[in-house]
Structure formats: structure tokens, C-alpha cells
């Protein structure tokens, strides 16, 4: 294993037991992220992005969820093997999380100062007064006046709440932040503000970040690397530039085609034919084969392995196997 890899996920499989049957939310997922890097994690709803994030945090509710196999190395240690107690020391301190909906990710009956202090007091050996001062400092950092520290979440707007959540996630200067669609629930104008704030703070704190999104525009704005996810596994992984210049997997191509173009007058948006597979369906061969315009006979029988187009660009597709 290389040393500069902060997080490395190998062959991760996560399933959920539901009434309709076993759902394979994540299938043999491989992923890595280096120090100070921002990884964009792109895919449709239900592709398993959030499940992967929850698996890294070890927050998958069990039952019904279960991590079937795989390894998640964080700084050389397998997070799936360490004790709960040790994991709690990593949660929040080394890896912190920003949730999708700021409206529900703050506790409505606790002052925001208390919620920031909770994080600080769990991981730092300081008294309440110092923690409070630190909480105020963090609020100022994300652009909220410290006089508002004793207010409750309902007194803030959505964008402000997400700023508070960012303050909480930064409280212990984590090495990795997992942001699960942090701007999806916000107004477009506020989205831009929050994104640029996250980008600035990430650079200031020297943190790595996994940004889960389905918005390729957001990825273009702040990510270094991009992983495209489909039906529980990563189908293409590349640096942002390479991916945008040379999208290779048919699914990635479809995604880029579906972005409306400014220079042509189109009545209908391009779309990828068909629907993503039902979570309980197990598709033989490549999961994308029913929707793929380049589908070959082989795709219906075998699962494609990883093909490296170059050192930092891989794709799971038979089209590139012999090139």
C-alpha cells in the first residue's frame, strides 16, 4: 500500500435486508483518496454513494444493513476491524461528515454553540469555557457572528444552518471530510456561497474531502479527482481534467451528454435510455449493459474488470480492455 493514500477502500460490499429481498447497495467498490485531495463522488440517486459514505463512518444501521466484505484503510488501519471505542475516537476527530439536508442535521432543541461544543469536548481535553470560545471562533470562520452562538437552529436560514454544520465538521481539524450532497437542499445562489466557503476552508485546513453529488457542475468547480458510480460500484475514476476531456465509460459519456448545451437550440435534453436497475435485481455481467449503446455479447455474461487508461484514469468496461 502506498503511503500517501489517506483512505483506500478495497472490494467493499454492503447489503440491506428489505422486504423485497436483499439489496446490494455497494458492489465491490474500490476507491482511494490522497492527502489534501478532493474527490467528487458522482452517481444517480440509489447508486450507493451515501451508503459508501456511511460505511466509511461505520454508521450503517445493522440490521438491516451489513458490510459483507471489503477493507477500508484509513491511514493504514482497517476501519472495519477496529473496536467501537477506537472508531469513536476517529469519528468526528479524523473523519467528519456533512449531511445532505441542513434543515434536519442540527438538533432543534440544542443551542448551536452546544452542538459545536459537543464535538470539541468529545475530542479535545479542554474545559467548557475554552470550548465555547473555540465554538465562537469557528462560527466567525464560517461567516456567522459569534453573538448568535446561543441561538437555536430554527432561528437560522438553510444556508446559515449548513454553515453551522460545516463549522461542526471542521471543529477538530479532521483529515477527511465527507460531504453528502451538501448543497442539494439549498437555493442556487446559496449553493455557490456554501461551495466556495467549503473550498476555501478545505484549503485553509489542508483537509481531504469526499464530495458526494450528482451535479457535474459542482464537481468541475472544486474537485481534483472524480469517481463515477453506477449501481453500487465505481465505473470510472480519473482526475477531473482527464474525465472532462475524455469521458470513457458509456455511462459517463451519457452523463455528459445529458448536460444541456448553451450553444445549440435543443427542444429536448439528451438522456440515457432506460432506468437504473431495481436495487433488488442482480444483473449478470456489467450492471450497465441493459442501457448501454455499445453493449456486446460478452457484457451480458462477464463483469468487466478495471482497465487503466493511464496511471490515474481507470474504467470498468470491455471496450477499452485491448487498447
Amino acid at each position: 500500500m502506498e503511503n500517501n493514500k489517506l483512505l483506500q477502500i478495497m472490494d467493499l460490499c454492503v447489503t440491506y435486508k428489505t422486504q423485497e429481498g436483499l439489496v446490494h447497495a455497494v458492489n465491490n467498490l474500490n476507491l482511494e483518496i490522497s492527502d489534501k485531495e478532493t474527490l467528487g463522488f458522482v452517481g444517480e440517486t440509489g447508486a450507493g454513494k451515501t451508503t459508501t459514505a456511511m460505511a466509511i463512518m461505520r454508521l450503517i444501521p445493522c440490521p438491516p444493513g451489513k458490510i459483507e466484505k471489503g477493507k477500508i484503510f484509513f491511514e493504514g488501519e482497517d476501519l472495519l476491524k477496529i473496536s467501537d471505542r477506537k472508531m469513536r475516537k476517529i469519528q468526528g476527530k479524523d473523519i467528519s461528515m456533512i449531511f445532505q439536508d441542513p434543515m434536519t442535521s442540527l438538533n432543534p432543541v440544542m443551542r448551536i454553540s452546544e452542538q459545536i461544543m459537543e464535538m470539541i469536548l468529545l475530542h479535545k481535553k479542554i474545559n467548557k469555557k475554552e470550548a465555547y470560545a473555540e465554538a465562537c471562533k469557528l462560527l466567525e470562520l464560517v461567516g456567522i457572528k459569534k453573538e448568535r452562538a446561543d441561538d437555536y437552529p430554527h432561528q437560522f436560514s438553510g444556508g446559515m444552518k449548513q454553515r453551522v454544520v460545516i463549522a461542526i465538521s471542521l471543529a477538530c481539524s479532521p483529515k477527511l471530510i465527507i460531504a453528502d450532497e451538501p448543497t442539494t437542499a439549498l437555493d442556487v445562489t446559496i449553493q455557490a456561497q456554501v461551495l466556495s466557503l467549503m473550498k476555501d476552508l478545505k484549503d485553509e485546513f489542508g483537509t481531504s474531502m469526499i464530495l458526494i453529488t450528482h451535479d457535474l457542475g459542482v464537481v468541475a468547480e472544486i474537485c481534483d479527482k472524480v469517481a463515477i458510480m453506477y449501481a453500487g460500484s465505481v465505473v470510472e475514476y480519473a482526475s477531473k481534467e482527464k474525465l472532462y476531456l475524455n469521458p470513457s465509460h458509456p455511462y459517463t459519456k451519457g452523463l455528459f451528454n445529458s448536460i444541456p448545451k448553451l450553444d445549440t437550440d435543443e427542444e429536448f435534453l439528451e438522456e440515457i435510455d432506460g432506468l437504473p436497475p431495481e436495487p433488488t435485481d442482480v444483473i449478470s455481467g456489467c450492471a450497465f449493459n441493459p442501457r448501454c449503446p455499445y453493449c456486446m455479447e460478452r457484457c451480458e455474461k462477464e463483469k468487466p474488470g478495471i482497465t487503466y487508461l493511464d496511471k490515474e484514469h481507470y474504467v470498468c468496461c470491455f471496450l477499452y480492455e485491448n487498447k
Binding site: 454508521l59 469513536r88 469519528q91 468526528g92 461528515m97 449531511f99 434536519t104 459537543e118 468529545l122 461542526i168
Partner: peptide
């Protein structure tokens, strides 16, 4: 089931 409960767990709270 609410997000702030996951958030509390993600903080490393017991």
C-alpha cells in the same frame, strides 16, 4: 431516524 441523530453519532458521541 433523523439526520441530527446520525450527525451526533458521526461526532463520535457514545
Amino acid at each position: 431516524r433523523m439526520d441530527f441523530v446520525k450527525m451526533a453519532r458521526a461526532k463520535g458521541q457514545k
